[in-house]
């Protein structure tokens, strides 16, 4: 655990000086950090707990909408609305989980798509609530301590803090009782129950935490975009991207989702600027290559190799 916190500390230090070194690559860095945070949050449920959700865009949308509408309609500062969004997302996660956790495996994944699609339709059609299909602007933001929240540097630090908090949460949970409960439920619900763990409660807790964290990142994303439309932010595609990031990086590992974000967003950006209209094709090929040759995800595969080497060494004596 200390080792992981040390790693996080080093990364934070790198992050803090990043804007000074690469002042012209902040947007892409913000994307990486947000996706790292979302994928790590997703992984609490999807990786550690084994419940693959394909509806996490709902929580991103929730966070973004709370911040945008709170600011534009009620003049509420983003830190309040983000806290409200997190609470609301946790409540939604509870209800959602209560509704669908009797389902297992692919059935659960399919049900999350259905719930998320219904939420998307609500966000588009209920104009009184969300401003409807034409979207919402964030025109002004408060300036705490004179910091301009619209500046990319401030947004970068917000995203950095978000990603760091999420990773720290996972580090703590990985060694806590809750973390073992999560894994026990993932491996075998019936045996977990026999060991005195209530699978449904464990899954609900994981879903609520995952949802709350995701929505905070969603709030930051709302500030970054400054203009949000329900189609884009509640899209199934975004849900899939979040899950994809975690899985490519390595499910159920501490650093996997973050590595996945770095690889996928980094590669996506590189392909976008070099291959023009063929870039999505190359991106698809990349995904296929990773799946074929690194089926456990990048970090998952590395960890497996290390363990193998360890055993090999021991065997040699």
């Amino acid at each position: 655990m200390t080792k992981h916190f040390l790693g996080l500390g080093v990364l934070l230090a790198v992050g803090i000086v990043y804007p000074a070194i690469f002042p012209n690559y902040l947007t892409i860095a913000i994307s990486v950090l947000l996706f790292a945070g979302w994928a790590t949050s997703w992984d609490l449920l999807g990786g550690w707990n084994g419940q693959v959700s394909l509806g996490h865009a709902s929580f991103v949308g929730l966070g973004a909408y709370f911040v945008a509408i709170g600011q534009s309609r009620f003049g509420l500062a983003p830190w309040w609305t983000m806290a409200m969004a997190a609470a609301f997302a946790a409540a939604l996660g509870y209800f959602w989980g209560w509704l669908t956790f009797s389902l297992r495996g692919p059935y659960f994944s399919l049900s999350t798509i259905a719930v998320a699609e219904i939420l998307r339709l609500v966000a588009i059609n209920e104009e009184w609530l969300t401003g409807g299909a034409t979207g919402v602007f964030i025109a002004t933001l408060p300036e705490p301590f004179g910091i301009d929240l619209f500046s990319r540097v401030a947004q970068f630090y917000m995203a950095l803090a978000f990603a760091a908090v999420v990773v720290a949460t996972v580090i703590v949970i990985s060694r806590a009782r809750f973390g073992y409960q999560l894994r026990a439920v993932r491996e075998d619900e019936d045996s977990a129950m026999a060991a005195g763990i209530d699978p449904t409660t464990t899954k609900l807790k994981a879903f609520m935490l995952s949802a709350a964290l995701t929505s905070i990142g969603g709030g930051i994303y709302g500030i970054v975009l400054a203009f949000i439309e329900p189609h884009v932010i509640f899209a199934l595609l975004l849900s899939v991207q979040i899950a994809l990031t975690a899985i490519i990086g390595g499910r159920g590992t501490i650093w996997g989702p973050a590595v996945g974000a770095l690889v996928l967003i980094g590669a996506g950006e590189m392909f976008r600027t070099t291959f023009a209209e063929a870039n999505m094709l190359i991106y698809g090929i990349l995904i296929l290559v990773v799946v074929l040759f690194v089926p456990r995800g990048i970090v998952g595969e590395l960890a497996r190799r290390r363990i193998r080497r360890l055993y090999a060494k021991r065997a040699q004596g």
Binding site: P23, N24, Y25, L26, T27, I28, S31, R152, V224, L225, V232, G268, E269, R272, T273, A276, E277, N279, M280
Partner: peptide, 21 residues
């Protein structure tokens, strides 16, 4: 200099940043 935005805001903003700088 034409940059593709992959039909999404996030990439468009990255492109805008590179142009701005």
């Amino acid at each position: 200099t034409i940059q593709d935005d992959r039909s999404e805001a996030k990439s468009a903003l990255a492109a805008a940043e590179s142009f701005a700088s």
